[in-house]
Design a binder for these strands. Sequence first.
DNA 1: ACCTGAACACCGTTCAAGT
DNA 2: ACCTGAACACCGTTCAAGT
Lengths: 228, 228
Amino acid sequence: MPRPEPISRRDRPAKPPLSRAAILDAAVDVVHRDGAAALTMRRLATELDTGPASLYVYVRNTTELNALLIDRYLSELDLSWDGREAWRERLQRVVDDYAGLLASQPGLASAALTTWPDGPHYLDLLELLMRLLDAAGIDVETAARGVDLLLQHATASAAEWAAHATPAGQDLADLTETLNAATAERHPSLHRAGSTVFTSGTPDERTRWATTAIVNGILAGASEHPRR
Amino acid sequence: MPRPEPISRRDRPAKPPLSRAAILDAAVDVVHRDGAAALTMRRLATELDTGPASLYVYVRNTTELNALLIDRYLSELDLSWDGREAWRERLQRVVDDYAGLLASQPGLASAALTTWPDGPHYLDLLELLMRLLDAAGIDVETAARGVDLLLQHATASAAEWAAHATPAGQDLADLTETLNAATAERHPSLHRAGSTVFTSGTPDERTRWATTAIVNGILAGASEHPRR
DNA sequence: ACCTGAACACCGTTCAAGT
DNA sequence: ACCTGAACACCGTTCAAGT
């Protein structure tokens, strides 16, 4: 009896050896197909045709996996600045881009909130932001705090945006309903403001407004130490 | 044979009937004893001496549970303002308090990020913030956006703080290490700034700085629409 | 040395069946 | 009508055992 031909490479590609890079590639595939929420150690192991335990040889834990993945996604962003575009415009754009990137895959943002992305592209992002704030005439210490705040804002916005887009999340109607409970007696300011003030405008526009406010705040004497 | 005495109430209190309130009480107990990360539907059911399915009669899902719980915790905060304390000071204090509250129980903050707290005390918080920004001379629409941003900041700060305090989280050393990879060629600004700029100061102090910056940003002509 | 099967200790949510 | 046992479809992580 003839030994059966091995299945051709084309039909069933040879199982590639595991490596950090191979794991990250598979992670990108999973996120692309089923969203970041589907990216679990077990799912990733299935994808790589192995058991979950094998991944732990290359990745310390889920947190580290997420940190690596975000850096990987960051590589798709334009993080250059020729110095000709006004710093304000460039800053607005990179913050928008970063928030958009994190929001593009539900779950990526919430990972970014509890994880410092770790890798060369994240450094590129930090470098760009520091350059822009330096161009704005802001001293290094203040700039570092500003970068922190801007990234926090971008990440949190993306997380909120993503959370309310999932089926388990609440939607805007819930908040409006809550606000309708505001009475003229106990909550006069809210009552006067109406139940839609907190939800007017597009999420995009609201995020841009906030970014502008933060930048203005950094410029407006934020180098002073806050009073207790 | 005499029927055994029923176990006395003192030894084994009568199983109270389920209700939203009873569930929330048990949730507070669980969080108090084992932290917000331990608050799961199953754990809560065990606590209430029933099966997890029973909870779904009173609470739609985990998201709603968290929303209710945060409001419950909010009731412990002082949300009054007599108008004598300067608005800036009062604002700083309530934001600090809110962030502290969310950070006090690991997991509460990350719930708040993806969940609008729902209940009377959350309305009290919104009311106070709107009053304070009104006292600062800010128009209603801008104030609403400002409140949004301030709460986002408080929540995100608490989430970060809590995340890095858990065993699974990264610690500051990781970020410093990442920054050490910045070279004078590719990342001159970072290289110049040094690897500790992003981690200098206490988390508390950094959060206060950011709050001040945001307030200044709201004041500093943030009522203009941002340029595209 | 490198890799992994199987186990441990969990999850949220649903639904058919009981009282 | 109200409640729930049991099941469904998952998790992250560890470690003893295999190649």
